[in-house]
Simulated scan of single mutants.
Amino acid sequence: MLMRRTLLGGLALPLVATRARAQVWPDRPVRLVVPYAAGGPTDTVARLLAERLSASLPQRVVVENRAGGGALIGTEAVARAPKDGSTLLFTTVVHAVHRALHGTRLTFDPTADFAPVALVGVVPQVIMVPPESPVRDVPGLLRYLRDGQHAYGSSGAGGSSHLGVELLKSMTGVRAEHVPYRGTAPAVVDLIAGRIALVMDSVATGAAQVRGGTLRGIATTGPRRSSALPDLPTVAETVPGFAATTWNAVLAPSGTPDATLAAISEAVTAALGEPALQARLTELGVEVPPAAERNIAAARQFVAAETAKWEKLIAEAGIRAS
């Protein structure tokens, strides 16, 4: 009889845990809203995460692309969504600059209307120049920009490729004229043709150009060397404290119950701890932080720090949305 009770008690534990977890999750599929078009690097990472979460959670996680307006359309949709965990935002560094770029035109508050849930990964950028450029390293790049009138291309005003170069200018005093494009792809075309001096692009897309020799990589922009381009130094090795990355994070509408936020965060952290998913993300240039740096508290601190950093730069540089 004692053995029978022990066995039954042991079987009850996972049932209780499963029931408790189900209670904090919505009773319908979870929408993971990506405020960008399907097929891009952010969408790819979101789909990998959603697939893994769907295999372990009470409800399927379905990616929904709501592109347009510089990520404003999808972000607004999540801000107005039910506060029950059924709609989540999968966003990037753009979330940290919405308020500074758009001000009173925003229909939501990026800070007050959202609760950071988990930091998924950080994606450094790579500074690229044409193969025939005399620039071969960061010190040479700084001398080059100080000595002449040069232009750099970006994906548009307020994008990570724009802000990264502006941060470099702010920290070093170099000059470079900004030429905004509709995405980094056309900027890279002009860079290859020698019509602009440099482009700072995500390693998720720029690494292929560097590895193939189409462009010369000068340095990456994270706090440590990138696994996607390990032979390149970081900008911070020459300019201490420099870091200009994009990132992926999961956010929920503010007011979502704490228990639901905790369940989502734990699920994301567990999924990112799986070697197969980590390996796939590494291939895409996404650096997954340690578990202690991707939970709710860490995600909240990270997003707040990024928001303060980029809002300060935008104000000082007088950057306006295009």
Rank of each mutant, 00 (worst) to 15 (best):
F242P: 00
T260C: 14
G318D: 04
P289V: 09
T307D: 07
P290E: 10
R280K: 15
D231W: 11
L272I: 06
K312N: 13
V268Q: 10
K309D: 05
P275E: 09
A315I: 12
S254T: 15
F242N: 01
P230E: 09
E237S: 09
E316A: 15
P257W: 03
V286G: 08
F242Q: 00
T307K: 01
A259T: 09
A271Y: 04
S254Q: 15
I314P: 01
T256N: 09
I264D: 04
N295S: 13
I319D: 01
V288P: 11
A267M: 04
G255W: 01
K309I: 07
P230Y: 09
G285W: 00
D231V: 06
R280P: 01
L261P: 01
S254C: 08
I264Q: 07
P275T: 07
E316T: 14
A259H: 09
V235E: 00
V239M: 10
R294V: 07
I264V: 14
Q301N: 13
G255L: 03
L229K: 04
E274L: 10
R300C: 11
P253I: 08
L313W: 01
A291R: 11
T282K: 10
E237D: 12
F302I: 09
T256A: 06
K309H: 13
L261C: 06
A298V: 06
V286C: 09
K309W: 08
I314E: 00
A263E: 07
W247C: 10
A249V: 14
A236P: 02
V250Q: 01
R280L: 13
K312D: 15
N248M: 09
A305G: 09
A291N: 01
A252S: 07
R320Y: 07
G241K: 02
E293T: 09
D231M: 10
P257H: 02
A299K: 00
A249F: 04
P240T: 08
A299V: 04
T307F: 00
A315V: 13
L232P: 02
V239S: 05
G318P: 03
A317D: 08
T307R: 06
G273E: 04
T246Q: 00
E293F: 08
